[in-house]
């Protein structure tokens, strides 16, 4: 089977399943909104610095990813569809299809989280394009790591809360770059030139993570 064709088939299957139950979408939206509102109530009237605003934004996105995307492969196991997928498509197609689906979900999370932070925590976005670029590139790396690790989780016996433990140490370089990059989007004096280094790092990080993940995925996927 053509590689693009297989990837598209996996993505289509994911989208169709999601349209039926809307579990992941609803869960992610509610998680992001309620946790950010909780933060806003806890912070109250206090002014918080831009660095802290983007830090909170990214922490919520990371937690949303580690909670909402962890079920990608566990669900296949529970529905008993793993063998069917293994028979019909190659491992790299499964990985890429799920990666694209997770990435779309994460982009939605980014939009909602940014809106909520802007409204409740009074975030002042000076360069919207830059913030969007940082969010998009950061989420790509995040989706790449989460997709491989959720396949690992599906191979363990107690699948529950393991994903954050595995995910967070890997994402430290990403977190450092996205926070600096997003911070530059909030400061009139910074803007694109100040964020170029972060963007380059994020692109490189996402590329390396996804390439390694595709190379390693078969070892987790096949028995």
């Amino acid at each position: 089977m053509n590689w693009l064709h297989g990837t598209w088939a996996v993505l289509q299957k994911e989208l169709r399943l999601e349209m039926r139950s809307r579990y992941a979408v609803n869960m992610l939206v509610m998680f992001v909104v309620s946790s950010l509102v909780l933060i806003a109530y806890a912070v109250g009237q206090t002014e918080i610095a831009p660095r802290l605003q983007v830090a909170l934004l990214w922490i919520v996105i990371l937690f949303a990813a580690s909670i909402g995307l962890g079920r990608a492969f566990v669900a296949e196991d529970e529905r008993g569809t793993v063998l069917l997928l293994r028979l019909n498509v190659r491992g790299s197609m499964v990985y890429t299809g799920k990666l694209v689906f997770n990435y779309l979900l994460l982009l939605g999370v980014d939009v909602i989280a940014t809106l909520v932070v802007t409204v409740f925590l009074d975030m002042d976005i000076v360069y919207p394009g830059l913030l969007a670029a940082v969010l998009a590139l950061g989420s790509l790396g995040l989706a790449g790591a989460t997709t491989l690790l959720s396949a690992i989780i599906a191979r363990t016996s107690n699948r529950g809360p393991l994903l954050p433990v595995l995910l967070f140490p890997i994402l430290v370089p990403l977190l450092l770059s996205v926070v600096t990059g997003s911070e530059a989007a909030l400061d009139v004096r910074d803007g694109w030139p100040a964020a170029m280094e972060s963007l380059a790092t994020l692109a490189g990080f996402a590329g390396v993570l996804i390439t390694t993940a595709i190379l390693l995925f078969d070892y987790v996927w096949e028995d």
Partner: peptide, 9 residues
């Protein structure tokens, strides 16, 4: 797999 993936980052 995890050890290699982490070592890359």
């Amino acid at each position: 797999v995890y050890n290699i993936f982490a070592a890359v980052t």
